[in-house]
């Protein structure tokens, strides 16, 4: 783990560089509140993919999540004249919808990271601690900043089956900014903020 190089945009000195394949020790060393800059191959997967895997579906050939990251994202993709894809918008989608399934996918497919937004619940938190995974919160709605960090769309799977937003897109990302909000030590920023804000509200109603 090295401090990030200071380059354009929002990769800051204090950011921790994470490069695929991710190893367990590196992931377990991360703490809630750490800002990371992610490099390498990630796969998108959202509602349809999670439900499919939960129900025993198999990953398509060429897709491995082992020591990898799943990105909760339904990008806007435009097909180019040469049949390649261009990613024109790629922010995170709300992760909590995958709460019923995520723990199992972390356990069975060897995920080290989940990128999304809005946080996840207790089952995911437990799975992160148990199997060595973290939840990485990207800035919701920042579709253009994040699309710029997609260097290449390498492949797409289940495009026909699930439609473009729900397909598995294989993305090569560079210096993709995110914040660790659930770590492998059983801590969750979402839990902390919820408790604190609930107490603050109780004093005001």
């Amino acid at each position: 783990m090295q401090p990030g190089k200071s380059v354009t945009g929002f990769t800051k000195i204090s950011m921790i560089e994470l490069t695929f394949p991710f190893n367990e020790n590196q992931i377990r060393a991360l703490k809630v509140g750490d800002e990371v800059s992610i490099n390498g191959v990630v796969f998108t997967g959202r509602d349809a993919v999670h439900k499919y895997l939960h129900e025993g579906g198999q990953l398509p050939t060429g897709v491995s999540l082992r020591d990898g990251i799943i990105y909760h994202c339904g990008p806007v993709m435009l097909k180019q004249a040469d049949n390649t894809w261009k990613c024109t918008a790629a922010g995170p989608t709300t992760s909590i919808r995958e709460e019923p399934y995520q723990w199992q996918i972390i356990r069975d497919f060897g995920l080290r990271g989940v990128i999304g937004k809005g946080g996840m619940g207790e089952r995911t938190q437990v799975a992160c601690r148990e199997y060595g995974c973290v939840y990485l919160h990207a800035v919701g709605g920042a579709a253009q900043v994040l699309a710029e960090r997609v260097r290449q769309v390498r492949n797409v799977h289940f495009l026909e089956k699930f439609g473009a937003p729900e397909a598995i897109w294989e993305l090569e990302i560079v210096q993709f900014p995110a914040v660790v909000t659930i770590d492998a030590h059983g801590k969750s920023l979402h839990e902390e903020i919820l408790a604190r804000s609930r107490a603050a509200l109780a004093e005001r109603v």
């Binding site: 945009g9 929002f10 800051k12 800002e35 994202c73 339904g74 990008p75 806007v76 024109t88 918008a89 790629a90 922010g91 989608t93 800035v139 919701g140 709605g141 920042a142 579709a143 253009q144 900043v145 699309a147 710029e148 937003p165 900014p177 914040v179």
Partner: peptide, 25 residues
């Protein structure tokens, strides 16, 4: 503050590129 800065950068980028602010249109 860092999140708001990314949001502000995103606003400028979307306008310049004439692309969706957020992928969920």
């Amino acid at each position: 503050s860092n999140a708001m800065a990314i949001i502000d950068q995103n606003i400028a980028l979307a306008r310049r590129k004439s692309q969706p602010l957020c992928q969920d249109t």
